[in-house]
Design a protein around this nucleic acid. Structure first.
Length: 805
RNA sequence: GCCGGGAUGGUGGAAUUGGUAGACACGCCAGUCUUAGGAACUGGUGGGGUAACACCCGUGGAGGUUCGAGUCCUCUUCCCGGUACCA
């Protein structure tokens, strides 16, 4: 029998599967599985991380299909976006040409994976028939008042020349290109994600997602409970609102601090302090976020004004400092230096009063941030922090000086981008009517193709009068089309709704198909989208739910996170480190099955790992061993009924193990047990101890168990075994529990918990305590001869432990 | 700083959830085959110890609970991911 040729075999089956439409999505199914991977960005090449995501995801899909579930497993492209635009500029190409070219290449690579993609259900977010509906969703949000324009401080990436959402700023840098983000005052479009903040937080408990992802979302939303308190200036002319999580410390508020961008800064600054203030504001305005973060020392300037602490009635100075951020709370704080580290540092530096109001630790050298018993707090002294928070907030509320307040860190989603390659924002700016939405009948607003890029990547839309010139849909007057496009995360926030029927014309998604397939049953992808895509998609789903377009409010019931694939050196793969593994070279030499098996055997799926070329050999050998075992002639020479029974028992144990492990995405242990079984059955084969019929039936079962892992190899073997139809249409094997029960058990004998001996006992005897103790005593009789047994512990079916002195 | 995850042979990793630590695989060593190399196959492989057994040590570190701890508790070191003047 010839050696296994993965290249020929894989090409052969890929063709047959395609021609026979083997993986066509069933129109309906009693039990459905919407198995989804995060669709790729058409960067030009499928990298090893894609394989690590898509291969095991397909194994899960195939496993479910064999369980009789109707499976929808689509694939498409997240095709708009900056990298394509930048690459096109760099190569002097059109963005659409570059994207189309990459999609062609990547489609070929995707086919090699051997995944059961249904290519009749693919989509591409840069196509007008798709982005028409992205625009439609924008208009729905606009109608509901949840897409709005706002003037304000935004994150600006000077290298990509566009604004960014908060979620796209990582450590003060642009998530895409790593450039330091600047702050700018601009009028931009936002989506009101904060309107859904409580649902986004609370519904996390209903989701079957990894806890760490849920925690990341919880942290990002950043809910905190406290109080809003109003402080009046001493002349009562102005009011300053502050947010605090520690109303119990209000008696210790000895000064106030407001952000440099606070609207009252100018008004509060007295003549004597004006020069210093102007200087301070000027240098603060020039700093990037990074500068601010890295500032070692607290800086600040006194305004010259005072406010009255409503609790102590004392006059306290109002300062301006960068450590108070305009974007959180009210942009002003009551500073309690005794009980807040930052306020403490500021007070020490500028020699401000420190009054301790919580007992329990000295504030001589540092702030005391814990809760405790109140002191120096008037009528509230003696209470503990917990009840004082409630009592003081109630008192503030009764005196109309404050109220309980819940604060979130999450801000609205800034979706405008000053770039060309994205979904045009369907808005027309009219001098008399303002921002007017493009009427639905005029959708899509087509993105003009074949555009030459301006200098420095300037959006061609800005220099395209034909695109901009438009009549106002309201008054018919001359007006100007919006030239910004949408963040690509808007495109990807709803794509999973369209997959079930991507050619649907009458809406963004086909309600019948959505009813059949949604929500997504399992979503498989990396953790890098925890607070980006996954949060946005939940928001859009909740919006469409609240407006009656969907009857579910969470898009992804179950989330599976694969770990990260690292280079052979254990580092994140990057061009600069030169440690990028190209999957194609392995696929072209050893086949997709070997690559899939390698990736799944490597270790726990959610932990990832580094690519080790040496260890790849193991997966390759595994494939060859299966081939050898299943396709070379079996000769029955030396029948042994004990071995036959053992083979049968091991097979059924294997079915159980592979079933349970695959279900739990524990691919590595599923494969390990299969290897173990193959080692055992190779010995049986060599000795010819089992009947030919048993052997043949065992091989058939084994091939079915392996089908989701190595789809090409198993299909070829299946055919050679004489089967006419595909192994991928077979039903998943079931195990017989009666065959799994061992008829003997190994009982361990311990002395003081240490292994000393073991014996085999008939399963019927394994739970008879007296018998086990008797047998165990025989085993270690000589060792026990001159020791005193103080206790005997018998664990039925497992062990006997003698405690001796 | 805060939140989450982790540390087991030369390497990747197993371990029925408190009951034989190191499954499976890589690598290495020896052997068979081969002109040779490779491939394939067979056996061995945590450390110490022994002629071979016996025996001792061993899951980042220090304690503890228990007849028995990789697994539970307390403290601690280091690594990874997320997040951060968030009041």
């Amino acid at each position: 029998m010839s050696k296994y040729d993965p290249i020929k075999t894989e090409a052969k089956w890929h063709k047959i599967w395609q021609e026979s439409n083997l993986y066509q999505t069933p129109p309906s199914a009693r039990s459905k599985l919407y198995n989804l991977v995060m669709f790729p960005y058409p960067s030009g090449n499928l990298h090893i991380g894609h394989w690590y995501n898509f291969g095991p995801a397909d194994t899960l899909a195939r496993y479910s299909k064999m369980h009789g579930r109707g499976v929808l497993q689509p694939i498409g492209f997240d095709a708009f976006g900056l990298p394509a635009e930048n690459a096109a500029i760099a190569r002097g190409l059109m963005a659409d040409e570059w994207t189309t070219h990459n999609i062609e290449i990547m489609t070929g690579q995707l086919n090699k994976i051997g995944a059961m993609y249904d290519w009749s259900k693919t989509l591409n977010t840069s196509q007008p028939e798709y982005y028409k509906w992205t625009q439609w969703i924008f208009l729905e949000l606009f109608k509901a008042g949840k897409a709005y324009q706002k003037d304000g401080l935004v994150n600006w990436c000077p290298s990509d020349k566009t604004v960014l959402a908060n979620e796209q700023v990582v450590n003060g840098r642009c998530e895409r290109c790593g450039a330091m983000v600047e702050r700018k005052n601009l009028k931009q479009w936002y989506f009101s994600i904060t309107d859904y903040v409580d649902e986004l937080l609370d519904d996390l408990t209903t989701l079957d997602w990894p806890e760490r992802i849920k925690d990341m979302q919880r942290n990002w939303v950043g809910k905190s409970e406290g109080a809003k308190v109003t402080f009046a200036t001493t002349d009562a002319s102005k009011k300053l609102e502050v947010y605090t999580t520690r109303p119990d410390t209000i008696f210790g508020a000895t000064f106030m601090v407001i952000a440099p961008e606070h609207p009252l800064v100018r008004e509060l600054t007295t003549k004597e302090n004006l020069t210093a203030m102007t200087e301070y504001l000027d240098q603060a305005g020039h700093k990037t976020d990074i500068d601010r973060m890295e500032a070692q020392d607290k800086t600040g300037v006194f305004t010259g004004s005072y406010a009255q602490n409503p609790a102590t009635k004392q006059n306290i100075p109002i300062w301006v400092s960068e450590y108070v951020l305009m974007g959180y709370g009210t942009g002003a704080i009551m500073a309690v230096p005794a009980h807040d580290e930052r306020d403490y540092e500021f007070a020490r530096k500028f020699d401000l009063e420190i009054v301790q109001v919580i007992d329990g630790a000295s504030v001589q050298d540092k702030a005391h941030e814990l809760t405790g018993k109140l002191i120096n707090s008037g009528d509230f002294s003696g209470m503990d922090s917990g009840s004082a928070k409630t009592a003081i907030t109630a008192w503030l509320e009764a005196s109309k000086l404050g109220k309980p307040q819940v604060q979130y860190r999450l801000r609205d989603w800034l979706i405008s981008r000053q770039r060309y390659w994205g979904t045009p924002i369907p808005i027309i700016h009219c001098d008399s009517c303002g921002a007017v939405p493009v009427p639905e009948k005029d959708l899509p607003v087509l993105l003009p193709l074949k555009q030459k890029f301006g200098k420095d990547g300037r959006s061609p839309l800005l220099d395209n009068p034909d695109y901009q010139k438009v009549k106002c849909p309201k008054c018919g007057g001359d007006s100007k089309r919006e030239t910004d496009t949408m963040d690509t995360f808007v495109d990807s926030s709803w794509y999973f709704l369209r997959y079930p029927n991507p050619s649907y014309q009458d809406g963004p998604f086909d309600p019948v198909a959505v009813k059949q397939w949604l929500p997504v049953d399992q979503y498989i992808g990396g953790a890098e989208h925890a607070v980006l895509h996954l949060l946005y998609a939940r928001f859009i789903t909740k919006f469409l739910h609240s407006t009656g377009h969907l009857d579910f409010s969470e898009p992804f019931t179950k989330l599976i996170n694969q770990g990260m694939m690292l280079g052979p050196d254990g580092n994140k793969m990057s061009k600069s480190k030169g440690n990028i593994i190209d999957p194609d070279s392995y696929v072209d030499k050893y086949g997709a099955d070997a690559v899939r098996v390698y990736l799944m055997f490597m270790g726990p799926y959610d932990e990832g790992g580094s690519w080790d070329p040496k260890r790849f050999e193991g997966a390759h050998r595994f494939i060859n061993k299966i081939w050898e075992l299943c396709t070379t002639k079996y000769i029955e020479t030396n029948l042994d009924s004990t071995v036959e029974a053992e083979l049968e028992a091991k097979l059924h144990k294997l079915i159980k193990k592979v079933t349970e492990d695959t279900q739990a995405s524990k691919f590595n242990t599923a494969i390990a047990s299969t290897m173990e079984f193959i080692n055992f059955s190779s010995n049986v084969k060599r000795a010819g101890q089992a009947s030919s019929e048993q052997w043949r039936s065992m091989v058939m079962t084994l091939v079915k168990l392996l089908a989701p892992f190595a789809p090409f190899l198993t299909e070829e073997i299946w055919e050679r075994l004489g089967n006419r139809s595909s192994v991928h249409l077979e039903a998943w094997p079931e195990y017989n529990p009666a065959l799994i029960a061992d008829n003997t058990k190994t009982i361990v004998v311990q002395l003081n918990g240490k292994l000393r001996s073991e014996f085999i006992v008939d399963s019927k005897q394994a739970f008879n305590k007296e018998e086990l103790e008797r047998l165990a005593r025989q085993q270690v009789a000589t060792m026990l001869s001159d020791s005193k047994i103080s206790k005997v512990i018998v664990v039925p079916g497992k062990l006997v432990n003698f405690v001796v002195s």
